Simulated scan of single mutants.
Amino acid sequence: MNNRPLRVMMLGLRGFPNIQGGVETHTEHLCPLLVVLGCDVTVLTRSLYKPAAACSPWKGVKFVSLWTPKSKGLEAIVHSFLGVIYAAVKRPDILHIQAIGPALMTPLARLLGLRVIVTHHGPDYDRQKWGAFARLVLQLGERWGMRYSNGRIVISKVIADLVLTKHGVTAEQIPNGVDLPLFPNSIEALNKFKLIPGHYVLLVSRMVPEKRHLDLIAAFKLANVPNWKLVLVGDADHPDAYQREVIEKAIEAGAVMTGIQQGLALQELYAHAGLFVLPSSHEGLPIVLLEALSFGLPVLASDIPANLEVGLASAHYFPLGNIEVLANSIKQWSIKGLTRSARESTRIWVTERYNWQIIAEKTYKLYLSRLSKATFFSVKKKLSQ
């Protein structure tokens, strides 16, 4: 490499900063730290979310916008194919593919002589929004990404066990992370949405079925907490029937729908919430849950394996889909909350356990360990078996 920076190309995400999505938030934190560690990082973004005009370097990270079709079913796979072709021309030292859908292109990337790292953020084929064919493609992406990449990263032990059981390979477990935030002094976002500090239940997520907004809306209505509001932050990437149903039910329940919030406004909404709830049926390792904990919030999460892996006390979990238990838990937490010292302990605990600097260092170390291990002939032999 002649002492030049390690050239890393990221593929499989919409773009960043301030673009909703777990993978997007993950790479938004990771990439600038990789730059500090000595990487020349280029992120291949989707034109629908980050067009060429918005691709100025950010915190040392470079961006290249590639055309993307406006289609929920096609945008990721088409963009990933174009990204692999672009990478084959530019020849980075490492092509880092994020998520199992884009990982479908791993064999092509290897056959084109690229060194490929794949991060498995979760079994996306379990998401409710996908039909049978899309699930099959995602399962194939997982299979090829895990079996044919030069290196594999998983963000939780749950996913590591899945990969070992299904594909017979081990993976480096490198979780999502969180920064210790400063509390904003302002409450402009609260004033805008007519919210009382400490008197609202918060959910931050994309508006997709597996986030189970309808469960939370129903439970909040059943809880009947005086002077509290339900606040839903986020929106759908593509308008659909689920989004329309959530809007209808939210209006009936008197919930506040803020749309996508970023920067200071989002920090204010986190900092002054009385309770954060994540009722999801599917997660990898939820960054929004870690972010809520980094503000010291009381949290409630469904008892799916990815949420349980965060390691909270049992009082912070409820059975997935059980509206009555969730409603009762909301009521209880609205009364007792957390003491100031408990909130500060929570902040310290989560930011020490899920530290972005350590995550970046582990990722960089994996890159270096794989520089001499990629050959065209090894993957060609594998594919012919």
Rank of each mutant, 00 (worst) to 15 (best):
L338Q: 11
S341I: 11
P305G: 06
L293W: 02
I323F: 04
T346E: 10
Q357R: 11
A342M: 13
I323K: 06
L320D: 11
R347W: 04
S329K: 15
N322E: 14
W356L: 03
L320S: 14
R353E: 10
A306S: 13
S345I: 12
A306L: 11
R353K: 15
Q332E: 14
G321E: 04
T346L: 13
L308Q: 11
K331P: 05
V299P: 01
V299G: 01
S314P: 03
G311D: 05
L293C: 09
L326F: 08
V310R: 05
A315N: 08
A306G: 06
G337A: 10
I358H: 06
D303P: 08
R340N: 09
A342Y: 06
G311C: 01
Y354C: 13
A315M: 04
L338S: 07
Y317D: 00
T346D: 00
V325A: 03
L312Q: 09
N328E: 14
Q357E: 11
I335L: 14
A313D: 14
S334Q: 11
E309W: 02
D303I: 01
V299Y: 00
R347V: 06
S334K: 02
Q357A: 05
A315V: 09
L293A: 08
V310G: 03
E344I: 11
K331Q: 13
Q357F: 08
K336F: 15
S314H: 13
E344P: 02
W333G: 01
W356C: 02
Q357I: 12
P298M: 10
K336S: 15
P305Q: 06
W356A: 07
S341C: 02
R353V: 10
L326D: 03
A306E: 13
P319I: 11
I330N: 00
Q357P: 00
A342G: 02
H316E: 10
E344G: 01
Q357S: 08
L320A: 12
F318D: 01
Q332L: 14
W356D: 02
G321S: 07
W356Y: 12
R353W: 09
Q357C: 00
G337I: 04
I330R: 01
I330T: 09
Q332S: 15
S294D: 05
K331R: 15
E344N: 13
S341V: 12
A301C: 12
L338M: 14
T339C: 07
E309G: 07
V350N: 04
P319M: 08
F295L: 10
F295M: 08
E309M: 09
G311T: 04
A301S: 13
S329T: 05
Y317T: 00
E352V: 07
I348N: 10
E344F: 08
E344A: 12
E352D: 14
T351D: 09
G296A: 10
N307M: 12
F318L: 05
L338Y: 11
K336T: 15
A315L: 09
S302C: 08
G321V: 07
N322S: 13
V310S: 04
L293F: 03
W333I: 09
F295K: 09
A327K: 03
S302E: 04
N322P: 05
N328Y: 03
S334D: 09
V325D: 03
S341P: 00
S314Q: 15
E309H: 07
V310L: 12
H316K: 06
R343S: 15
L308P: 01
N355F: 05
R343Y: 01
